[in-house]
Amino acid sequence: MFKTLGFTEEDAKEKFGFLMGAFQYGAPPHGGIAFGFDRLCMIFCGEKSIREVIAFPKTANAISLMDDNPSLVSDEQLKELHLRIR
């Protein structure tokens, strides 16, 4: 599988190593599913946009207009996190 995806063994180990490690200790056959809950609610509410079923959504520009988010942070915060804005 990883071969077809063009991963080297190292790549695969770096990205999924802990999972592959875990699989060596008795992994049962398994499978799953994930529901997009917002879209499910949208349809059940008969709405046209998921923003109508999310209490505090962001705009298409990825901004929250109510609390003006994202926002700048202080230099102290950046320094603590070892970050510099270029």
Binding site: P28, P29, H30, F35
Partner: peptide, 14 residues
């Protein structure tokens, strides 16, 4: 949305 809600499920022996 940047953040969204999932009902996440996994099952064994199925």
């Amino acid at each position: 949305q940047l953040e969204f809600t999932q009902i996440d499920v996994e099952m064994s022996f199925i």
